[in-house]
């Protein structure tokens, strides 16, 4: 697969995230395809992790009203952590991508809730739903990544 194809598919998933956000009545029901794509594409092509991190971070910055820098840094940290995981473990393990997506999405969501002081039981339940929905999209994203 050429680099252009890889980036095109990556951009398509980011665009799909935006489309889903417009269709769903609440953003809590929208799986975070941006983080899912970031993790899976970084795991598949670890040498390009910085490119995926910058693209995903830029896209998250566009969608973020408050703390855009934090969204960018969050994407870079998630991509870095995924790259470390790829080096330490076998990426072909069926559960490793799901685990990385769960940890990445949970870390980003919970840290945002903590900084904005909105961590109530109901919101935490919604965050858990959000993480579960994101994880359910991993098999589909793996197929798109190739």
């Amino acid at each position: 697969m050429s680099q252009a194809d890889v980036l095109r598919r990556f951009a398509a998933v980011l665009g799909a995230h935006w489309v889903l956000a417009q269709l769903m009545p609440s953003p809590w029901w929208v799986p975070n395809l941006t983080i899912g794509a970031l993790v899976l594409w970084t795991g598949r092509w670890p040498s390009r992790w910085w490119l995926f991190a910058v693209c995903a971070g830029w896209w998250m910055m566009v969608a973020t009203v408050r703390e855009p820098g934090a969204a960018l840094i969050g994407c870079v940290l998630i991509a870095s952590a995924t790259r470390v995981a790829v080096r330490q473990f076998d990426w072909d393990d069926p559960y490793l991508p799901e685990i990385c997506v769960v940890l990445g999405t949970a870390a980003l969501t919970l840290s945002t809730l903590w900084t904005e002081h909105v961590a109530s039981p109901t919101v935490l339940a919604l965050a858990l739903l959000h993480v579960c929905l994101t994880t359910l999209t991993v098999p589909l994203l793996r197929r798109v990544a190739g």
């Binding site: 995230h17 956000a21 417009q22 953003p27 929208v30 969608a63 973020t64 945002t112 909105v118 959000h130």
Partner: peptide
Amino acid sequence: IGRSMLPTQQT
């Protein structure tokens, strides 16, 4: 023309 992709920011 658009809605927030992030659930923690309702914009």
